[in-house]
C-alpha cells in the first residue's frame, strides 16, 4: 500500500486513489482523419514497463482531481507527482 502525495491534498493512503493507466496519451484532435491503425494505436496500445513509468491517478475518494505520477513498477517507488497539464520531470 503506497502513500501517495496528492498534489492538491498531500500524503494519503493508496486506498483513496485509483490508477488510470499510462499518462501523456493525448486524445487526437481530429479522430475522423485517422486511419483505423492510427486510431487503434491511440485506443488500445499502452506500455507496460518494468521500471520507470508515467501514470495517471485520481484522488477518487478525496479531491477527485486527476494528476500524473512517475512510478518505478519494479519496486513501487514513486519518483514524482505533478498536476495535469504540467510537464513531466526530466529523468
Amino acid at each position: 500500500m503506497f502513500i501517495i502525495n496528492c498534489p492538491y491534498c498531500g500524503e494519503r493512503e493508496q486506498s483513496e486513489f485509483k490508477a488510470g493507466g499510462e499518462a501523456h496519451i493525448v486524445r487526437p484532435k481530429q479522430p475522423t482523419e485517422l486511419s483505423d491503425d492510427e486510431w487503434a494505436e491511440y485506443l488500445f496500445m499502452r506500455k507496460n514497463i518494468k521500471g520507470v513509468q508515467f501514470e495517471r491517478w485520481v484522488h477518487i475518494h478525496g479531491c477527485r482531481k486527476w494528476f500524473n505520477m512517475v512510478r518505478d513498477t519494479s519496486n513501487d517507488q514513486i519518483h514524482a507527482v505533478y498536476k495535469m497539464g504540467e510537464k513531466p520531470p526530466v529523468k
Binding site: 477527485r64 482531481k65 495535469m84
Partner: peptide, 8 residues
C-alpha cells in the same frame, strides 16, 4: 466525465 473534463 470528470476524467475527460480534467484531462482532455
Amino acid at each position: 466525465l470528470e476524467d475527460y473534463l480534467q484531462t482532455e
